[in-house]
C-alpha cells in the first residue's frame, strides 16, 4: 500500500527542509524512510519503490542506502523492538547478562520475533548513553537507562500487559545552584584528590 498518497502536507514539509534542486530532493530520503518505518515498523518493498519515485531515484539505490544503516528494517519487527547496547561501557556494566536474560525470558534470539508479535531483540553499538549503562533503546521511542534485572522484569511485565512504553531517561549531570556537585567533598568533608590514593 502506498504510504504518502494522502499525506501531501507532510511530504511538502519534508521537502521544504532541503534545497529545491535534484540533489536537495534526494536529501529527503532518510526522513521519508523514517516516516514509513515509524508508522509501519519496517519499510516494505512497495514503499521503497514509492520513496524512490518521490526523490527521483531507483529502488536499488534506496535499498543500497538503507542497508548502510542499522536502523532500517525490511521485515517486520516486534511491536516493541528492544535494542541492547553491547559496546564497552555497557558491557562492563553487564549488558551481556542483560542480553542473556532477554533471550531466556522471551525465548527468542537476535532478529526473531516472539510468537505473540510483541517483542524482538537486537544487539546494537553504543547509543550515546554510556553514563547510564547498561541501557536499551525501545523501538524508535526512546531509551531505558540504568537497567537492573528488576527494572527490566517490571518493564517487560508492563509491556505484556498492554501498557505503552515510556522512555526512562536519567540525566547524569550533577549541578545545583550553578555549582557542580562534588560527591566526596560532601561525604568526607575534604578534597578527595588530596587524600591518600584509594586502596581496595
Amino acid at each position: 500500500m502506498l504510504y504518502f498518497t494522502d499525506k501531501q502536507t507532510q511530504l511538502a514539509d519534508i521537502f521544504s527542509r532541503y534545497p529545491h534542486t535534484e540533489q536537495g530532493r534526494r536529501s529527503a530520503l532518510m526522513p521519508l524512510l523514517r516516516e514509513v518505518q515509524n508508522a509501519l515498523g519496517h519499510v516494505p518493498e512497495e514503499n521503497i519503490a514509492e520513496i524512490a519515485a518521490l526523490i527521483g531515484s531507483t529502488a536499488t539505490e534506496v535499498k543500497s542506502v538503507m542497508s548502510f544503516y542499522s536502523t532500517y528494517h525490511t521485515t517486520p519487527t516486534g511491536k516493541w523492538h528492544l535494542q541492547v547496547c553491547a559496546t564497552l561501557s555497557c558491557a562492563i556494566a553487564g549488558s551481556d547478562e542483560l542480553w542473556d536474560y532477554l533471550v531466556d525470558e522471551l525465548g527468542i534470539g537476535a532478529g526473531e520475533v516472539t510468537p505473540d508479535g510483541l517483542f524482538s531483540i537486537q544487539k546494537v553499538e553504543c547509543l550515546g548513553s554510556c553514563g547510564t549503562a547498561p541501557m536499551i533503546q525501545v523501538s524508535d521511542v526512546g531509551f531505558s537507562e540504568c537497567i537492573t534485572r528488576r527494572k527490566m522484569r517490571t518493564q517487560l511485565e508492563q509491556l505484556r500487559a498492554g501498557a505503552n512504553y515510556l522512555p526512562d531517561t536519567v540525566v547524569p549531570v550533577f549541578i545545583q545552584d550553578g555549582q557542580q556537585l562534588n560527591a566526596l567533598e560532601q561525604k568526607i568533608g575534604g578534597k578527595y584528590s588530596e587524600l591518600e590514593p584509594l586502596k581496595f
Binding site: A93, C130, G131, L184, E185, S193
Partner: peptide
Amino acid sequence: QISGPVQRPGVFELPLGATFREMIFDFAGG
C-alpha cells in the same frame, strides 16, 4: 564524561588542565 565502575558516572565540566584524579575522584566519586 566518565563511564565504567565509578560512584557517579556522568558528565562534568572542567577547565582544560584539570587532572584525571580530580575528575575521577573529586567529581565522579572514585
